[in-house]
Design a protein around this nucleic acid. Structure first.
Lengths: 210, 210
DNA sequence: AACATATATCAACCGCTGTTGATATTATTG
DNA sequence: CAATAATATCAACAGCGGTTGATATATGTT
């Protein structure tokens, strides 16, 4: 007799694990996935911990609270940011197309950036941090590109923000609502259809001439 | 002595109130507001009840569960629906502008419809019901209009869904993220800037001609 | 080897939330 | 008027979820 509890899972041993520790990173990745999939309220510390194969208390020790963990999740790599900014250099008459392509590549890539952005978007509904972060992304990131060649800065900011919002809307349709016609279409087809529309917002034909 | 508890609120009396009862409707309105403001998970039965000036248990008696209450909240008036559908009748070269105007009027009006749509949008993050409802709204409502004068039905559906998503994106920017340049701009200014873009998606210049 | 420190689990607390059953008061109907 | 139904509150339960304090095990430092 003297049986050790063999009910339940492998019963993870108590203390620190031997060898190199990649756990903190694993927790962060799990958090990104969970927040991206369920939003801020929907994701739970326990689910994140389970996803990372770890006890919930450990998550709290690494990051001090759910809010701070969420804050850590929402960070975009400089590469992704410059990729979007880069869309604005080049011939002005095709900036719409390049912007759509760059945006979709970043938001739908499999890098952690895509999850981070999804987390922001889903979190923006119930979390002030998330909406602030995404707001700033829309206000500054995409606006900066246009500011250079423009006299009316307010109007330029408005047009850039509209363009960014419309792109976010496409993500909502594809990734969150999963509208089938949108979700099944491949990325370049979307670029072809949306490019001209974005072009019309970013560089309206009347503006420079009369 | 023999004091009746005068601590706490008016201490609402126990039974049914005299006179006409508008309470059920009041609960429904409160629910719409709360769901629209906080999303499905964020809104609580107790908060809804408090908003309606009622006990939480009463909410459960009227609507059987939080899910059913949410279901009741998400219903759009036929007037609003026909208002959007109506945008597709009229000269084809200005359908983009009319669509934007009709969409914004419905989503930003002060009717219960606006709250219901906000509730759907915010709820879509964490509630299957909501995303289904909004998906169908995008898939069918806005698509039907274009189907009539079209040979390639798949492409027409795609373009309509793209247009609808882009409009939803604008709502996200204005109402949820509260991007200041967007939120402060008045509706007609947005119509002017977005109309041509929507036109480009709905009626691409290549399609009918060469 | 001894000590501090980082990494890990466990058990429990506490507040919030959806939901329920009991009860009180009014309206409605026969 | 009696009986039934509808409208209302109250009290409590049960589960989940964030957070904490105690403890165990490995690593690093002196």
């Amino acid at each position: 007799m003297a049986e050790r509890r063999e009910t339940r899972e492998p019963a993870a041993r108590r203390g620190r694990r031997p060898g190199q520790n990649t756990t903190r990173q694993a927790v962060l990745n799990a958090a990104r996935r969970q927040f991206a999939a369920a939003g801020f309220k929907g994701a739970t510390i326990r689910a994140i911990a389970a996803d990372a194969g770890v006890d919930a208390a450990l998550v709290m020790q690494f990051f001090r609270s759910k809010d701070e963990l969420f804050g850590a999740v929402m960070s975009i790599s400089p590469e992704a940011l410059s990729r979007i900014a880069g869309a604005f250099s080049g011939p002005l008459e095709s900036v719409g197309e390049r912007a759509v392509r760059a945006y979709l590549a970043v938001w739908e890539g499999d890098q952690p950036d895509a999850d981070a952005l999804q987390a922001m978007l889903r979190g923006a509904v119930s979390n002030e941090q998330a909406s602030t972060q995404l707001r700033e992304f829309i206000e500054s990131r995409l606006s900066e590109g246009l500011q250079h060649f423009e006299s009316d800065r307010h109007d330029a900011a408005l047009r850039a923000a509209l363009a960014a919002s419309m792109l976010v809307g496409i993500t909502v349709g594809r990734q969150i609502l999963r509208v089938s016609v949108l979700a099944e279409e491949d990325r370049e087809a979307i670029v072809r259809r949306v490019g001209p529309a974005l072009q019309a917002v970013l560089v309206p034909p009347q503006s420079p001439s009369r």
